[in-house]
Computed example of a mutant assay.
Amino acid sequence: MLIASSRVLLVLVVQETGGHFRGTNVWKLPTGVVNQTTDGTGGKKKKQESGKDKEKDAQKPAKEGGNPNPQGHSSGKDKGQGGTGSGDDDDEEEKWDWRSHYGIVGDIIDQGEEAVCWAFAIVRVVEALYNIGQTLYLRKYFSIQHLVNEVPYEKTGILNCKRAFDHVIKHGLIQEEKCKFVGKKFVCKHNTNFNRTTVDNFVTVHNVDDTELLLLVRRQPIVGILDLTDELQDYTTGLYRGSGSTPNRGTHAVVIVGFGVENGQAYWLVACSWGKQWGNQGFGRIARRTVQGQRSVFKSFHFPEKKDYPKE
Rank of each mutant, 00 (worst) to 15 (best):
I3F: 09
D91G: 14
L2P: 03
N195P: 14
S50M: 01
G85K: 10
L10R: 08
P247K: 00
N160H: 06
R124A: 07
S6I: 05
Q277F: 13
G43H: 13
F181H: 05
Q281L: 07
R99Y: 11
G238W: 06
V14S: 05
E262R: 08
Q175L: 10
R218C: 09
V297I: 11
T229F: 05
S6F: 12
K44R: 15
G244K: 01
G260L: 01
R22G: 13
N160D: 11
A271S: 02
E113C: 08
Q48C: 13
V297C: 14
T135W: 08
I158A: 09
I108Y: 03
R7S: 02
L228A: 14
K299I: 09
V270L: 00
W98Q: 15
K28V: 15
K185S: 03
V116H: 05
C161H: 12
E154A: 13
K46W: 09
G85F: 07
V199K: 13
K189P: 10
R249D: 07
L129A: 00
T135K: 05
T237M: 04
E231D: 14
D308G: 06
E64K: 14
V125M: 06
I256G: 00
G19N: 09
E92T: 11
G275F: 09
K178C: 13
H101A: 10
G279F: 11
V14A: 07
G66N: 14
G157P: 02
K56A: 11
K184V: 11
K184T: 03
A58E: 04
G258E: 09
D90Y: 03
I158R: 04
R99S: 13
E177W: 09
S245K: 01
K77G: 12
S86H: 07
S74N: 15
C272V: 15
N263Y: 13
I286D: 02
L214R: 05
G43C: 01
E127N: 04
L9E: 15
Q277V: 09
P152E: 06
F259L: 08
D107I: 00
P30Q: 04
G43A: 11
R7K: 02
A287W: 08
T229H: 04
Q111T: 11
I169E: 07
K307F: 06
G82T: 13
P30W: 06
Y153T: 09
H101S: 12
L29Y: 04
T290C: 10
V11Y: 14
V223D: 01
I122L: 14
D210E: 00
Q36W: 06
H146D: 12
G244Q: 02
P304G: 00
L215M: 14
R241M: 04
H302P: 07
D234P: 06
D91T: 12
G32A: 11
E92C: 04
P68W: 03
C179P: 05
A119Y: 01
G282C: 10
R295D: 15
E16H: 02
K44Y: 11
D107Q: 01
G66F: 15
G32T: 15
S5E: 14
I104V: 08
K54P: 02
D90M: 06
K311N: 12
L228S: 06
V123T: 10
